[in-house]
């Protein structure tokens, strides 16, 4: 009976997830060419070997940096929010305002703010040639900054919810046992917030690893992160590029799944999970 109740939801999810991934997999293995005879091969994976490896490294770097920064800043913001003072309310309002802004708008705004011809260097009176290459530079600063801005707000709201509902009474108990604010943070608040932070981190990592538009808008033309590479190949004139695009998508998906598995394993090891 319960199976029947969830069946519609499962069917739709499976259609998109399994169907989409399945199609990509089949296409990447040469079994669904746009022209010619289907034949099983890894050619699509090997065709852009170097670009694929560079892209993988780059995407991992961007996702890791964005995730770590978002979690640190978001957790800090959550602690400030739950202190309940005026600053807390301000941070909560800012976080809530950040959530509905689409990444594309955010990326455009970050570009307008911190590019060498942007608002910030002009306001500070710094010449464009002396301004660091934040947009399109070698360190992908603008991309990581945009992700961090938006995802730290996500972490802040998720963790603040957990702190306010589940952790507040523990915090009071710890205070009554003589723990100072710093000790409470270290011994109670952070350990109890860890599962929520891990879950948020998994979501952020997978999102930033597979997201296209921010890296495309604020990154440099070469090297390309995996999603940008995949989209360029997908959109290319050459019809043989389609399986190559699918191969990049399959690798992106596989890495994401591994990260989710690792994250869930980590989550299960936290004492709170039981």
């Amino acid at each position: 009976m319960s199976v029947a109740l969830v069946a519609p939801a499962v069917a739709i999810a499976a259609f998109v997830v399994v169907g989409g991934i399945g199609m990509s997999l089949v296409q990447s293995l040469g079994l669904l060419p746009l022209v010619g005879v289907p034949s099983l091969s890894l050619d699509a994976y090997l065709a852009n070997g170097d670009e694929l490896l560079t892209g993988l490294g780059l995407s991992l770097g961007i996702a890791t940096a964005s995730t770590v920064l978002s979690c640190v800043i978001g957790l800090t913001a959550a602690v400030v929010i739950t202190q309940g003072r005026i600053t807390g309310r301000l941070v909560a309002a800012l976080s809530a305002l950040t959530i509905p802004v689409p990444h594309l708008i955010g990326a455009a705004a970050v570009g307008l703010l911190i590019s060498d011809a942007g608002v910030l260097p002009r306001m500070l009176g710094i010449d464009g040639t002396d301004w660091p290459d934040l947009v399109g530079g070698p360190w992908w600063v603008a991309v990581v900054l945009e992700y961090t801005w938006k995802e730290s707000a996500f972490v802040a709201l998720v963790v603040a919810g957990v702190l306010a509902s589940r952790v507040a009474r523990y915090d009071e108990t710890a205070a009554l046992l003589g723990a100072s604010r710093a000790r409470r943070l270290r011994h109670v608040v952070i350990p109890l917030a860890t599962p929520a932070v891990i879950v948020s981190a998994i979501i952020i990592f997978v999102y930033t690893f597979g997201s296209y538009e921010v890296a495309w808008l604020l990154g440099r033309p070469y090297p390309e992160p995996l999603p940008v590479l995949a989209f360029r190949l997908f959109d290319a004139i050459s019809l043989t590029s389609r399986p190559e695009a699918a191969a990049v998508a399959v690798i992106t998906t596989a890495v994401s799944l591994v990260v989710v598995a690792l994250g869930m394993a980590l989550l299960r090891r936290t004492p709170l999970w039981r």
């Binding site: 009474r169 523990y170 009071e172 108990t173 710890a174 009554l176 011994h187 109670v188 350990p191 109890l192 936290t270 004492p271 709170l272």
Partner: peptide
């Protein structure tokens, strides 16, 4: 203080 719920630190 001891509350109605024991509030033992779960970690």
């Amino acid at each position: 203080m001891v509350f109605q719920r024991p509030l033992l630190f779960p970690h």
